[in-house]
């Protein structure tokens, strides 16, 4: 528990408060959904502890409820998790010098919001203890918020207002992360192309349009960066 760890933990924690707030409605919805798809309380809590992955949980519940074959359930979960391969590859250098146990724990805890908000800072820092604090503190906070509010959903499935569009809070949380990120021209291009491509490719099976849209957005941002540099070089020449 040295000083760098604590400073990193504080910075990551504060930066990820909107992420945790945005997880709350998702967690409640997921808790309600597990119960309404026929899982018992113990099975719901078990699923939640084993797989900390809202999208994969919500996506596989209809298959579980209909008794689909195990290979199909596994394949669907795998595809819904594919975006994490991109995150994992991007974030791997931040775990340099960390023991195996911390890497496995981090892999279990890695969430969309934490990656989106902190990846740039984590990769920029040269202090291993700071990086570890900055990743693990907000990740544990998001995990705890997720577990707590899924339990609310599991036990309160009947009592919550259904017509308040509470799930929209998740979208707001993602926007709060996206807006400051899109400040540079290439980042804005990546976001616009990624978003619109996903809309146009929405017909692809197993949400593969999401993966394809992300890839197109990444490539578009990279190309925009290349053009921006060439343009600046020509102006200064």
């Amino acid at each position: 528990m040295n000083d760098a760890f604590r400073r990193g933990a504080r910075e990551g924690f504060v930066a990820c408060i909107p992420v945790a707030v945005g997880l709350i409605p998702w967690a409640i919805v997921t808790g309600v959904a597990m119960r309404s798809h026929g899982l018992s309380v113990v099975e719901s809590l078990g699923m939640n502890l084993l797989a900390f992955a809202g999208t994969a949980q919500l996506g596989t519940l209809p298959l579980i409820a209909s008794g689909a074959p195990l290979w199909l359930i596994t394949l669907t979960a795998l595809v819904l998790n594919l975006r994490f391969v991109i995150y994992s590859a991007a974030l791997a250098p931040a775990f340099e010098g960390q023991p195996w146990s911390r890497r496995v724990l981090s892999s279990y805890l890695l969430a969309d919001g934490v990656f989106a908000v902190l990846s740039e800072r984590l990769l920029a820092s040269r202090d291993r203890a700071w990086r570890w604090g900055c990743f693990i503190a907000p990740s544990v906070m998001c995990w705890a918020a997720w577990q707590a509010f899924t339990v609310v959903g599991v036990f309160g499935a009947e009592a919550l207002p259904r017509d308040w569009s509470l799930e929209f809070m998740a979208t707001i949380a993602l926007l709060v992360m996206l807006v400051p990120m899109a400040a540079s021209r290439p980042m804005l291009v990546a976001a616009v192309v990624g978003g619109l491509a996903t809309v146009m490719l929405r017909g692809m099976p197993f949400k593969l349009g999401l993966v394809a849209g992300i890839v197109l957005g990444i490539v578009a941002g990279f190309v925009a960066e290349f053009w921006q540099q060439r343009w600046q070089q020509r102006r200064s020449a």
Binding site: T171, L174, M181, V192, T198, L216
Partner: peptide, 13 residues
């Protein structure tokens, strides 16, 4: 560019 693209891919649709 992965975070910006991924967030937009979730929000825009």
């Amino acid at each position: 560019y992965a975070p910006a693209a991924a967030l937009a891919a979730l929000v825009v649709p």
